[in-house]
Simulated scan of single mutants.
Amino acid sequence: MNRSAPSTVTPLTEPPVDTEEELQARVAWHYYVGNLTQQEIAHRIGSNRVRVNRLLAASRESGMVQITINSRLAPCVALEEALAKRFGLEAAVVVPAGADTESNMAAIGIGAANYLSRQIETGQTVGLGWGRTIRAVLRAMPQRAYGPLAAVSLQGGLSHCPSINTFDIVSDFANLCQADGFLFPVPIYVSSQAVRDTLLQEDAVRETYERARQSDLAVLTCGDLTESLVVTYGINDPQQVRELERAGAVGDMLGHFMDADGEAIDHPLNRRTVAVTLDDLRKIQRVVLVSGGAKKFAVTRAALRGRYPSVLVTDEETAQRLCEEP
């Protein structure tokens, strides 16, 4: 008697519900690859145009979608040349200004990422600053292996910062570029100059410090006295911020507070900063300053007057103001 093998019936299961990230990817694909309108996408996903617009914005903000525009705007090119000539820069990158602070930062980040992807070379040590602007740069950078590469923090970190820390910047860059990461395992501000000097004698800290000073390429931003992460989380003391203002500070670079001409101000905080010094920056072969927006204008100008950067990446409105000032 022939008996057929018992059949196995696999029960049908409901397809998993899209997560928010999957929905962002689906919407981005339909919009950028499928060329559907936002209204058509809204119909497909059973939603509305407002939500589709928000999902597209979120996919760009997270770095899921990276935009490269293979064209150069003539007014921006003219400003690049004017900036380079006026401030003695090796190069400048100027992007169209965004409609608000966040979009402006994202645009500058894209401009910086495009520039850096052409400048990074095998065997380099890349020194990295910190801040929301540098995070925007990393979000726009393509994932790519450059060969042996080192990424090193140019400054200490913060014990508390809910949005981003120096460790995140180095780690994210190392993951994107398959680089070895080196961190300052100390806070950016310590209790006294004596403590700072002692810390810099510790082997682990001294080795990172020396590696950072010898970077082939440094990428950093500068911060104003109102919204920078250093002011908000590193100082967190309105009275001390007022003291910095009275001492002539217009903002900071790597935690060092500068006056309008880019010189370090005479203030105890600057002597307690664990970071590559402003004088060290001048000795690095290529320093890329990524900075723009109205609130950062004074500190960006100060950095240029101090002749720290060899390359500036900024927005069109900031570039125009820098070129027009007497």
Rank of each mutant, 00 (worst) to 15 (best):
residue 192 S to P: 01
residue 305 R to T: 10
residue 267 H to V: 11
residue 231 V to K: 13
residue 246 R to M: 11
residue 6 P to R: 14
residue 172 D to S: 08
residue 299 V to M: 03
residue 90 E to V: 13
residue 114 N to M: 10
residue 136 A to S: 15
residue 49 R to N: 13
residue 87 F to Y: 15
residue 306 G to L: 09
residue 143 Q to E: 10
residue 178 Q to H: 14
residue 223 G to R: 09
residue 167 F to M: 07
residue 18 D to Y: 13
residue 324 E to Y: 00
residue 160 H to L: 12
residue 130 W to D: 01
residue 39 Q to G: 10
residue 195 V to T: 07
residue 41 I to N: 10
residue 265 I to H: 10
residue 242 R to H: 09
residue 326 P to F: 02
residue 161 C to D: 12
residue 147 G to W: 01
residue 123 G to I: 06
residue 1 M to K: 15
residue 171 S to A: 14
residue 299 V to S: 01
residue 104 N to T: 15
residue 268 P to R: 11
residue 218 A to T: 10
residue 195 V to C: 04
residue 251 G to V: 05
residue 275 A to R: 11
residue 325 E to I: 13
residue 2 N to W: 10
residue 208 T to Q: 10
residue 155 Q to G: 06
residue 52 V to C: 11
residue 12 L to D: 09
residue 94 V to G: 08
residue 277 T to I: 06
residue 231 V to F: 14
residue 65 V to G: 00
residue 178 Q to W: 03
residue 79 L to V: 07
residue 110 I to F: 05
residue 267 H to R: 11
residue 85 K to R: 15
residue 109 G to I: 02
residue 94 V to I: 11
residue 27 V to N: 00
residue 258 M to G: 00
residue 120 I to D: 00
residue 183 L to V: 05
residue 63 G to L: 03
residue 30 H to Q: 14
residue 133 T to M: 15
residue 97 A to E: 14
residue 72 R to C: 04
residue 277 T to K: 05
residue 142 P to N: 06
residue 243 E to K: 10
residue 219 V to Y: 06
residue 209 Y to H: 12
residue 204 A to H: 10
residue 92 A to L: 03
residue 122 T to G: 08
residue 136 A to I: 05
residue 39 Q to M: 07
residue 278 L to N: 07
residue 260 A to C: 09
residue 224 D to E: 10
residue 213 R to M: 09
residue 258 M to S: 03
residue 257 F to S: 04
residue 195 V to I: 14
residue 158 L to N: 07
residue 180 D to K: 14
residue 140 A to C: 11
residue 276 V to K: 02
residue 282 R to F: 01
residue 253 M to G: 09
residue 64 M to N: 09
residue 220 L to H: 01
residue 156 G to W: 01
residue 156 G to I: 08
residue 207 E to P: 00
residue 325 E to N: 03
residue 235 I to F: 09
residue 31 Y to V: 05
residue 65 V to F: 00
residue 179 A to D: 00
residue 274 V to W: 00
residue 231 V to C: 13
residue 274 V to L: 02
residue 262 G to K: 07
residue 16 P to R: 14
residue 270 N to Y: 04
residue 306 G to M: 11
residue 219 V to A: 06
residue 51 R to Q: 15
residue 207 E to Q: 13
